[in-house]
Simulated scan of single mutants.
Amino acid sequence: MTPAARVQSAIEVLDAVIAAARREGASAERVAAEWLKARRFIGSKDRRAIRDLAWSAIRLCGEVPENGRAAMLAVAKNDPAVASLFDGSRYGPEPIRSDEPAAATGFAPAWLEEGLAASGITREQAAALLGRAPLDLRANRLKTTRDRLAMTLPVATERTQAPDALRLPGGTPVERWPEFADGLFEVQDTGSQLTCNALEVRPGEAVVDLCAGAGGKTLALAAALQGEGQLLACDIDRPRLSRLAPRAERAGAKVETRLLDPGREAEALVDWKAKADAVMVDAPCSGTGTWRRGPEARWRLTPAGLARYAQMQAHVLRIGADLVRPGGRLTYVVCSLLDAEGPDVVAAFLARNPDWRAAEQLVGAGTPRGAGLRLTPWDDSTDGFFFATLHRL
């Protein structure tokens, strides 16, 4: 494939990504994967180049571009090498017209930029949200230690702030390694690992992961339990929760799963009411802290959508709090840097519930924000998170 053909292919991928973002369809990763799957003749080197071009355009355009060509023209304005490939060659893009507009560049839609600024996010912190994320592993304490794992892996690793974390370059094919098949590690961002550490789970405790999803945090909590105690993982999403059982088996973790009906979660958890020592509430959120991994997500978020997230967050926090025994604790987590989804939700909960107190967070990273801590790529080299641990009196 010629360089010009790669640019044209990236434009077509972008067209598909933009269309999906407008209708709140599949993620850019999935859209690109489907586009490439339908074109098996494209070699691996060309696939990587096409993806890199497309993602460069996604990161550059704050607002949703009109189309893929306009998005790629924004890249071309900053990169003469890319501009030169708009040459009208076979399978390449048509030449750039003198009056042809490129997509507007920016960090995010204007309303979202304002929201992040109002939440204390600086321009440097905001720009770092669109960088390239490394790949972090969590050594599975049920089977190994970080030091032993580092010695067995086929590449050099770097230790991060989380006690079980190892960092590798992004894109390293770790899931092909025998150590992964043997359950010696899970892929998990250092920031996510730190939020699990904030709950301070101890062997023998009764623990609930309320919004478990596919179980990334669940497995970290299971490792902290060391095979002693109870661990219940819940979610309303059947396909995601169904992925936890094989992961737990590979990790050697004991986990009970429970599918919940939306709006009737409390009924399904009545047997756990006021019985849990510790509850993790990894609440659904906008994901503003994870744009390094899915930069097109900022094209999908709307003010109305953000308001719906805040309602859901208050809802699941109430449900989680009802499960905690007196003297127990709860960690509330969102992978968002907007105050409306983090500090404001916790502050409102504490104002309504005088029998709860915010606890001091000692995880080795983060900046105080409201009653909790904030992690950012710029300050902590992690995904963006807000989390707060609350104690029931």
Results as ranks from 00 to 15, higher is better:
251 A>N: 05
62 G>P: 03
269 L>Y: 04
103 A>P: 04
206 A>V: 12
38 A>H: 06
257 T>D: 03
101 P>L: 02
27 S>Y: 12
37 K>D: 13
103 A>H: 04
107 F>I: 13
193 Q>A: 02
28 A>E: 01
62 G>R: 08
289 G>H: 10
197 N>P: 04
321 A>G: 07
253 A>G: 03
174 V>Q: 03
351 A>E: 14
62 G>M: 11
386 F>C: 01
258 R>Q: 05
260 L>P: 02
160 T>R: 14
88 G>M: 04
188 Q>A: 09
350 L>Q: 05
323 L>A: 03
236 I>D: 06
273 K>C: 13
39 R>D: 03
298 R>Y: 03
269 L>D: 02
116 L>P: 00
228 E>H: 14
339 D>T: 09
70 A>G: 14
278 A>C: 10
54 A>E: 00
352 R>Y: 06
50 I>M: 06
129 L>H: 09
219 L>D: 02
364 G>L: 09
64 V>C: 15
381 S>Y: 10
1 M>C: 07
291 W>G: 09
233 A>M: 05
313 Q>N: 08
144 T>P: 07
276 A>H: 02
320 G>D: 03
187 V>Q: 06
44 S>G: 08
332 Y>D: 03
300 R>K: 14
383 D>K: 03
176 R>Q: 14
41 F>E: 14
248 A>I: 05
277 D>M: 08
377 P>F: 05
35 W>S: 03
59 R>L: 07
77 K>R: 15
327 G>S: 06
303 P>V: 11
93 P>K: 14
39 R>V: 01
113 E>Y: 04
155 V>P: 05
294 G>F: 08
121 I>D: 10
51 R>L: 15
306 L>N: 08
237 D>S: 13
24 E>W: 13
250 R>T: 01
219 L>V: 02
38 A>M: 08
85 L>I: 00
230 Q>G: 06
151 M>G: 12
85 L>M: 06
21 A>G: 04
94 E>L: 15
350 L>M: 01
374 R>P: 01
235 D>W: 09
235 D>E: 07
299 W>D: 00
204 G>L: 07
168 L>R: 06
65 P>E: 01
154 P>V: 01
56 S>D: 15
142 L>F: 11
225 L>I: 05
86 F>T: 02
34 E>I: 10
32 A>T: 12
153 L>C: 02
287 G>S: 08
363 V>C: 04
305 G>P: 11
84 S>H: 09
333 V>Q: 09
117 A>S: 15
108 A>T: 00
27 S>P: 03
246 P>G: 02
138 R>H: 07
199 L>A: 06
135 L>S: 00
114 E>W: 02
324 V>L: 06
23 R>K: 15
256 E>S: 15
345 V>L: 09
3 P>K: 14
306 L>E: 01
272 W>I: 12
140 N>W: 05
245 A>F: 14
131 G>A: 12
343 P>F: 08
1 M>A: 13
144 T>C: 10
176 R>K: 15
371 A>M: 05
375 L>Q: 00
158 E>T: 11
25 G>F: 12
140 N>M: 06
332 Y>C: 07
148 R>Q: 12
165 A>C: 10
145 T>E: 04
336 S>K: 08
164 D>I: 10
19 A>D: 07
306 L>A: 13
377 P>C: 10
353 N>I: 07
377 P>M: 11
236 I>V: 15
345 V>S: 06
203 P>Q: 06
207 V>M: 10
30 R>A: 06
182 D>C: 05
271 D>G: 08
130 L>F: 13
340 A>W: 05
282 D>T: 01
45 K>I: 14
